[in-house]
Design a binder for these strands. Structure first.
Ligand code: MN
Ligand code: MN
Ligand code: MN
Ligand code: MN
Lengths: 217, 217
DNA sequence: TCATAAATTTAGACTAATCTAAATTTAATA
DNA sequence: TATTAAATTTAGATTAGTCTAAATTTATGA
């Protein structure tokens, strides 16, 4: 099995590879909160174990085995987050750190039972897809930043790209939570005016905020 | 906070001190599955942190702070075991290893919410008392080994002193589980004959087994 | 293309937890 | 009580993960 540390590296690399097909030493160091020299050492070890494809100075990608291992960790992380929110009543901005620890609990039987106990949810509290036991998952189709909506359009909030507690708390306070329907009433150079159902009170959100809210038409 | 390893030492020392008022280096080594020399190093560190009372060659005991920390870990271990059995349908012989990992999840808020979620159970799946958030707990009164029962006596199974998977599986198979009432029908030099409600079929258990079953009259 | 900057790797060192082997202290007993 | 045995500690080494500082490679852009 992989160590706690190795698992964190695999997960970070997996996330970095969602937007590009190679991750750099510095990016990984930033994601994990460590130094580049430390990352280099670990990359050698992960390559040795055939979990990543690595050539000096050339960045890394995951092997099939590495991707599989990463998906197990992502599955655990998101299922625990779901548990914390749905069963233990935590708010969506409170669960990340706990899930960071829980994702390393080894038993696969435990996570499969947990999955079943909760009715096999397909998305975590932040709208991210939860891989099944085989590592398969489906992202929402045609998910897009709220920023792309034009005046008069109406869409349902289904995800976020910023997972920071402060952003999530801001959304919570503004009732911009998952499942809410928003209607764009005005678009300016600086912000959008939106209404959130069911209160239908109008208010403004910045472009920066609208960029980090993902919606479905 | 304490490291994963420090927590395991504190918990082991706590358990050893249940039957005596001082634990030795070798006992701790055996409990943790490590070597005496390794234990000595760790004892120095724990003494440094004022978690144990330690004088070279003289064995150790827990300080008030050390006992408090140990009880937090015991609380976590037993609450997670309860969760695994009552919510995820694991059998009582399957949960120990998973709880060994889960007990190290740091968040106190998480464990308190879990406690609440399950209705604040007072005993774990093996009949061991679960400390509350303040570290208080009550053992069953007048708990005794089934071995002490005499012919004709009737009592309720409320605990075990052997927590091994094989012993627990044996009890499960014989329906000698928590809450069952047993009646002693015969006592010989080699074993006891008992009947278990509600089936009331008679069968024999060895003295060794009877020693490890705890009952309430 | 070539000098410089940025990214990455290497070298050498540190800490926590572990081990084996040797030395020391305590306990047992003849 | 003197000897031996058992328990414990010390000494010295190892491994995983981390760091800083220096060396190397790659990328940039004049
Ligand atoms: Mn983690
Ligand atoms: Mn999430
Ligand atoms: Mn443990
Ligand atoms: Mn238990």
């Amino acid at each position: 099995m992989h160590s706690f540390t190795e698992e964190n590296y695999l997960k970070s690399i997996y996330h970095l590879l969602l937007s590009k097909d190679s991750a750099t030493t510095n990016e990984i160091a930033a994601a994990i909160g460590t130094k580049a020299a430390t990352v280099t050492d670990m990359l050698k070890k992960l390559a040795e174990k055939k979990l990543i494809n690595y050539a000096r100075y050339q960045g890394v990608s995951l092997t099939e085995q590495g991707r599989k291992s990463a998906l197990v960790i992502v599955r655990k992380h998101r299922l625990w987050e779901y548990f914390l929110v749905e069963k233990l009543q935590f708010k969506w901005d409170e669960v990340h750190e706990m899930a960071e620890e829980l994702e390393h609990i080894t038993s696969v039987k435990l996570i499969d039972r947990l999955d079943e106990f909760m009715g096999c949810p397909r998305f975590d509290p932040h709208g991210d897809p939860i891989p099944d036991a085989q590592g398969n998952f489906k992202q929402h189709e045609s998910l897009q930043p709220a920023l792309l909506l034009s005046k008069g359009q109406c869409a349902k909030i289904a995800g976020v790209t910023d997972h920071s507690a402060s952003f999530l708390q801001y959304l919570e306070k503004s009732r911009l939570t998952l499942g809410q329907t928003i209607t764009v009433t005005e678009v300016s150079n600086y912000d959008l005016s939106v209404m959130v159902e069911p209160s239908n009170k109008e208010f403004n959100i910045s472009h920066e905020v609208a960029k980090n809210i993902l919606v479905l038409l």
